[in-house]
Structures are given as C-alpha cells and as structure tokens.
C-alpha cells in the first residue's frame, strides 16, 4: 500500500526538479559554447537594442561574452578578474570583481548557473527552481542591496544541461532577454 502510494506520487510528478538536482545536473558540463541574441527593451529607446555574439564557458570559472554586433566588445570573467574590452572603442579595462560588485554578481548569476554552483548563486540570490529536467526554470532574486539597486530578478531557463534563455528585470523598468543557442556537443 505504502509502496503503491510512493509509486503513484513519482508517477504523478515524474520529472519535477528542485534547485539542488538542477545544479547537480549542470555541474556535469565541462565546457559550453553558444551563440546569443540579447535584446534590451527600454522606454528610453526608439527601438530595442539588439546585440549578438558568442557566450562560452569553461570549467571551473571562465565565462566569456563576446559581442560581435553592433560593436566588438568582450567581457571575460575568470576567477575574480573581470576584463572588459572594446575593440571598436579600442579600450580595455581589467578590474577585480571587488571594484564592481554589482556587475560582478549579475555576471555571476550566469557563470554559477552554468557551473552548477548553488553556493555561489545563494551568496547573491534567493534561488528558486521549477519545471522538469527537460524544461526547467531558475528564478533568482537579489539578496544584496548592491545588486538590488539595479536588478529585480533574473530568470534563467533551459532544457537538460542546455541553457536557453536569460531574462533580467531591471530596477529601471528595462528588461533584457538573452536567447541562447547552445551548440550540441
């Protein structure tokens, strides 16, 4: 009887996923490369600002966002070294995360998710997860005032070990949506 009830429950919600399990699954990924399209929807803009480029990750802590259009910009977060490079403006700025805690924690939301590092996420965000293994959603709400000043929430969704979409609700009222096309390996 008890056995049957347990079986019943697992049949009723066969693939319901929680944050721990999701992170364990994602932690199995060594590296990932994806093309992305990021769109900023803002009342200040005549039309949404669209950027395209390549997003890559390599275990344990390298995240690179290379914007190829409309201008050539690279952002690399490795360890706690944050480098922002602008080929079009011929400028390069390397800083430590400590000098830019707000941006850093926002980028960390992507890197830590990609790395399956729940502890790193929980340092900056209240973490919630729902959906199934094949269609999951991670909802991050900032804990630190430094980030809360800028960001209301970050929603990352994906399927299996692939990250597919990042949506950031900014405190300014702007919304940025990043669609990610991960190359299957």
């Amino acid at each position: 009887m008890l056995l049957a009830a347990t079986a019943m429950r697992s049949v009723a919600a066969p693939q319901e996923i929680d944050a721990q399990e999701l992170m364990r699954m994602l932690a199995g990924v060594e590296s990932a490369t994806a093309s992305f399209v990021e769109t900023r929807y803002s009342p200040l803009l005549k039309s949404p600002l669209v950027t395209r480029g390549v997003l890559s990750y390599r275990r344990p802590d390298l995240l690179e966002k290379h914007v190829e259009f409309p201008s050539d910009e690279r952002m690399v977060l490795e360890g706690d070294r944050l480098t922002m490079e602008s080929a079009s403006a011929n400028r390069r700025l390397t800083t430590r995360v400590g000098a830019a805690p707000d941006i850093a924690s926002l980028i960390e939301s992507v890197r830590a998710t990609r790395a399956g590092d729940l502890a790193a996420l929980e340092r900056y965000f209240k973490v919630g997860a729902d959906g199934t293994r094949d269609n999951w959603r991670l909802l991050l709400t900032p804990l630190t005032p430094a980030l809360g000043k800028y960001v209301r929430s970050v929603e990352i969704s994906g399927s299996g070990v692939r990250m597919q979409r990042i949506e950031v609700q900014e405190a300014s009222g702007d919304r940025t949506v990043t669609e990610i096309e991960e190359q299957p390996r």
């Binding site: 990021e38 900023r40 803002s42 200040l44 600002l49 950027t51 966002k65 914007v67 409309p70 201008s71 910009e73 952002m75 922002m84 602008s86 079009s88 403006a89 830019a100 707000d102 941006i103 926002l106 980028i107 800028y150 960001v151 950031v168 900014e170 300014s172 702007d174 940025t176």
Partner: peptide
C-alpha cells in the same frame, strides 16, 4: 555602446 555591454545595467 556601453548600454549594450555587460555594464549596461549600471549605465541604464
């Protein structure tokens, strides 16, 4: 240009 960069949220 900066609005489209990773620091966009701060610029905004």
């Amino acid at each position: 240009r900066l609005l489209g960069s990773s620091a966009g949220v701060l610029v905004r």
